[in-house]
Design a protein around this nucleic acid. Structure first.
Lengths: 131, 131
DNA sequence: CTATTTTTACTACTTTTAGTTGTATTTGTC
DNA sequence: GACAAATACAACTAAAAGTAGTAAAAATAG
């Protein structure tokens, strides 16, 4: 019977959730009471994850366990993000910081700045940015 | 760390789902490509169940996988990070702009600014910048 | 830029357990 | 009663979880 869950995909989700929580592999491993190398295997999809373990992980990361298993792809967030879920490290950090900012006005302004910069960047100004 | 999923409970759910589907342990085992004795272990809670396996079982029994795990009602929330998968419109925009910026250095610097701001924001001065 | 520490990656090894096989009960129905 | 099924339990083997050691990136400091 075919495998109906992509273990590597789940690994990615775990990694993203971990980084969003601002934890290192080591810190997560400690919470789980296992070696960080084993956490690596989970994230890289080199080791199967039992339900108990996934439950622990979800708890350690303050994330509902469903986040990792909902097999239908209604996880698609928006078309603007091509490959759903696959965020780069930078992007994860960006989001993490952005979420820390509580002041709405500040967030909005920040977004505007970002927008303007990105538009400039689009016009081929990317070379001469440096001194 | 404590186990947050009752493996025996899941076993019961599997057994029930199996009977609902009108299958014997043997028949289910065959579908899974394992021995029926192993199915017994699942049902009795004597063997951990991996995600892949549970996914197979759910499929074999025409049951959504969530049926076996979701019931943990009020798991979460720690508002800060909890819903990483669901991005707000703001966040999607933020990402979109961020991705437009090609200059790596610029991106990195932008991230730093964001980080510093968020750290300030964290220290509870979200309302009024210090004078 | 260099040194140092932290974080992550890869490989080899050990231990645990998933999974198998064999046999014994149980639960039918004829 | 006999006879098949479905389920239970124990001992064993194969496979994978988990560990440990080392190396390479990334951050962070100096």
């Amino acid at each position: 019977m075919e495998k109906r869950v992509d273990i590597r995909h789940i690994g990615n989700l775990i990694r993203i959730a971990r980084k969003m929580a601002g934890l290192s592999q080591m810190e997560l491993a400690e919470k789980l009471g296992i070696s960080y190398q084993q956490v690596q295997k989970y994230e890289k999809g080199l080791s199967e994850i039992s339900l108990s373990r996934l439950s622990q992980i979800a708890h350690a990361l303050n994330t509902p366990i469903n986040r990792f298993i909902s097999d239908d792809e209604k996880m698609m967030v928006s078309e603007s993000m091509s490959l759903y879920g696959i965020l780069s490290d930078d992007e994860i950090e960006l989001l993490r910081f952005f979420r820390k900012i509580k002041n709405k006005k500040l967030k909005a302004e920040f977004l505007m700045v970002m927008k303007n910069i990105s538009e400039l960047s689009e016009k081929g100004l990317s070379k001469k940015a440096k001194s």
